[in-house]
């Protein structure tokens, strides 16, 4: 078996006294879409920030293609081939769409390659070509999400970390964006680590999935199998199993939230 492109071993991260990750271990195989599900506050964002170097972990290892990268600076990690599409898009509001995309390619020196990738990205998101000269802050939420993904692609990453791309988007837009994520994965061979609260959509496209709860991985399996598990159905897919009593459901739910 080949080594996974990304591996986390017992990663612990904190915000001052708040311990957000309590020993997270997971691995992502090259070329796959892997999802991490979890309720609000479970530590999904913190996991991604630890991988991309925004946060240095207290303990544990992050390996990218077999080499330790934990605690490295964010620009080293982008150069290594990992780009983070953050929660809430985080575009540069007063820069044009085009300049936002140029900033995605900040680490690159190959102008020809960048120009080619720009075309490719406009192919995935034609609306961005139309809006190229507009300030990014004036785009709608969905368009900003597209810009954030497009901007990440311009770094020509091997691995994209995606934090809740469906946040605040309509189901239709979410589907549109997820379809493109799949295309990016298939056509460009980019590995994707996708963090979501929207388990329904995420499990549909994921090869493999993890469930994160209060800073720990509590479940892992292939996307298809996770979608079949009762707990997942109940708490993430909103399907109530027959005969489950309200009280029990509430108790369990509290554990998840």
């Amino acid at each position: 078996m080949t080594i996974p492109i990304l591996q986390l071993a017992n990663v612990e991260s904190n915000y001052g006294p708040v311990q957000a990750l309590r020993g997270v271990s997971l691995s992502v195989a090259e070329g796959q879409i892997v999802t991490v599900l979890g309720a609000n506050g479970a530590g999904k964002t913190t996991t991604l920030k630890t991988i991309s170097g925004i946060i240095a972990p207290l303990k544990g290892q992050v390996k990218f293609r077999g080499a330790d990268i934990q605690g490295h600076s964010p620009d080293t990690i982008v150069r290594a081939g990992i780009v983070h599409v953050p929660e809430g898009r985080e575009v540069f509001p007063l820069l044009s769409v085009e300049d936002n995309l140029r900033m995605g390619a900040f680490i690159r020196r190959d102008a020809d390659g960048v120009a080619k990738d720009l075309e490719a990205v406009f192919g995935y998101f034609p609306i961005l070509r139309e809006r190229a000269k507009q300030e990014a802050g004036q785009l709608s939420g969905g368009q900003q999400q597209m810009l954030a993904i497009a901007r990440a692609l311009l770094a020509r990453p091997a691995l994209i970390l995606m934090d809740e791309p469906s946040l605040g988007l309509s189901p239709k837009l979410t589907k549109e964006i997820f379809d493109i994520v799949v295309r990016i994965n298939r056509e460009r061979g980019v590995t994707i680590l996708l963090v979501e609260q929207n388990a329904h959509m995420a499990l549909k496209i994921a090869d493999f999935g993890y469930v994160l709860e209060v800073g720990r991985i509590v479940m892992e399996d292939t996307g298809a199998k996770l979608a079949e598990k009762d707990d997942i159905k109940e708490f993430y897919l909103g399907m109530k199993a027959a005969g489950t009593r309200g009280a029990r459901r509430w108790k369990k739910k509290k554990l998840w939230r």
């Binding site: 964010p74 620009d75 982008v78 150069r79 953050p86 900033m103 995605g104 900040f106």
Partner: peptide, 8 residues
């Protein structure tokens, strides 16, 4: 923050 994410 976004600048950090872009590797600037």
């Amino acid at each position: 923050l976004a600048a950090y994410y872009m590797g600037i």
